[in-house]
Design a protein around this nucleic acid. Structure first.
Lengths: 198, 198, 198, 198
DNA sequence: TGTTAAACGAGACGGTACGTCTAGTCTTGCG
DNA sequence: CGCAAGACTAGACGTACCGTCTCGTTTAACA
């Protein structure tokens, strides 16, 4: 999730002079955002609070993130970064269940952050764009997994994978945002069974 | 979507004292909300703007709705009211496709309203509760349809209908909120085929 | 000292509906501004502090005054309002001394306010304009007094009254702003003697 | 106008090693300050802008001047340095007119600088102290001239020279700060005539 | 000729104020 | 009474500037 100057300039003209960005500040902001949103009643967390909790000036936040939504989005992405580099097993259902179990657990843990970030994306076009990028990356992972299964014949050749991916992530977001039902390991297992057959 | 005094009292307690609620004002507010949110850049529409566009005092809005989210929610519900009273056909796939086609079309039309209402529900607990009720009613309709199909053997007896319903509405909301793909009649047909088999 | 819409609209189109301006709030703001600036170290008094001390929302201040400078200016004008409606005596020197004694005393009392208002007028064009109006009104009073004396032959017929007025008010502001000397009753007496001869 | 370490330390402990102050930078800063303030709308000129315009780091400014006000003050003093070393003529009126003509011209030229410096002096105690010193030096020059005239009998023996000096410099500052009238050669002549008699 | 103290450019940082905006409440007078 | 107009409180938002700080480079006197 790059911050607002966009992708890193490949070849800076000058070798870079001046004080460098304080990575501790960046981490402190993201951690504070995640922490504050987790509190009860944390739906309404202001930039000012985040700055204070992070021991950082408000200006420092605005220097590096274009809006509140961008901070939430990056905090969410930070939390979501869950390297599962174990190789695929060769069974779609097993792979899918492993993926979904981990994903659902992470989503449940960061639910307040997800909710706030998605809420912000509905009112801040910059956050909306960030959300689009974030979700695209997630869908790509899942789609990769499904494609592998399809090529092994575990899914019908005419299955619409984009539709399937959106159903699965749709379920995740729908339950997270509406809050009428939870995302458990059971849900992950049941869903994997439905999708991948026996 | 009842407004805050709860469901409209069938029989007013007082036989007739004072002036009655101006229904024209109610409609004007909901129409103004829907209209303003539809504009480009309408993500940021304030109560003040809605009041002005409706030719109504801000106070009148707050007299009848507890919060901005409640207005949006009711405006959304108003737009979503699509009486399809034709009887079910007896084919799950046909029933489902008819339902989804209509639902997707309505959702696409009111997308800005849906987005704003869901966004508001992430920050306003009252709106969240309203959203929970609204979505529950929608899920019940769809579930009714699926149950009928299941009882006719068009879905496996062990299918988890709640999960299925959430996948379908999840897809709808996910695409609406993220905006990476659209909800077309094709989507409805394809999804119906996937769910209901041949 | 008119507030930002400028001169009072002569004939409002509507007889005016809606809540009327809270005069208590206006007075509270001006009093708070005067009070806070009088404190030691009051040079740096923020709008936020004034609002808090006045028990008023910051927004209310900005509704009625276009900038911080305008508030200070009006507070200053309010303090400067010193009705001396006693008739002129017929002796320039006596009239002048009475005028200057009162004026110097008032200036000394409100010195912090004068200093801040003039300081603000150096950076805020709106405040500068207000300052121009305020000082013009003051100069007119003094000039009226001098004109009367001149017509009685107590000042040479070719005396440049504008220059004289600016010397007198210049003295007042110069000492107030630089703070190297004070403005006492003695100063007033001595100055009157210099200007009006014996 | 000494900069913040005050008078140069008479006996440095070490003979001084390291790079010496860049005089070009000092001049560039003062010139940039004077230049930027002269622009239309230059009332609000920041240290950052001055640094940039001077091609100098902000830090370099703060190394040599304690505050923004000090920079403006020194820039003002720099502009005000107008060596008029011609001997006095022996006529108060002639001497005064020559002095005032030059002074008024200089003031008119540097008006934006004077205004900003005085404005800053109202909020920054360090700048206020600097302003006191600067004005004291100016008053001393003028007073010297008047004293000479008085000793020649061109002013009454009981004239209060301090009051007179403050009236004259008061006029200058009052017109500069309020901007309602200008300081021309005519003004200087007229004022000299008033003060020094025929 | 190297060493070393200090000045310098760039620019990040904490702090603080400004002026704007929105939500939601309250007041006044009209119909 | 219901309603429109609109003033009010509370407080977040994003911008701007100040004065301090760190980083790495450059300068020039000393050794």
């Amino acid at each position: 999730m790059p911050t607002h100057p966009g992708p890193v300039p490949a070849v800076p003209r000058r070798p870079h002079t001046g004080r460098r960005r304080n990575q501790a500040a960046r981490q402190a902001v993201l951690a504070a955002a995640a922490g504050l949103l987790g509190r009860p009643g944390g739906e309404a967390t202001s930039i000012e609070e985040i700055a204070q909790a992070a021991g950082v000036s408000k200006h420092t936040i605005y220097r590096w993130w274009p809006s509140k939504g961008a901070v939430l989005l990056e905090a969410m992405a930070e939390q979501a970064r869950q390297e599962d580099d174990r190789p695929l097993t060769g069974s779609l259902r097993a792979d899918l269940e492993r993926f979904l179990t981990a994903t659902f657990r992470a989503a449940a843990r960061s639910a307040p952050l997800l909710r706030s970030a998605m809420g912000e994306a509905q009112r801040d076009p910059k956050a909306a764009e960030g959300m689009r990028q974030f979700t695209a990356a997630r869908r790509a992972e899942l789609r990769h997994l499904l494609t592998a299964g399809q090529s092994r014949g575990e899914l019908p050749g005419n299955a619409d994978l984009d539709l399937l991916v959106d159903q699965i992530y749709g379920l995740l977001w729908y339950r997270t945002l509406v809050g009428h039902a939870s995302l458990t390991a059971d849900t992950a297992a049941q869903l994997s069974r439905t999708v991948a057959g026996t």
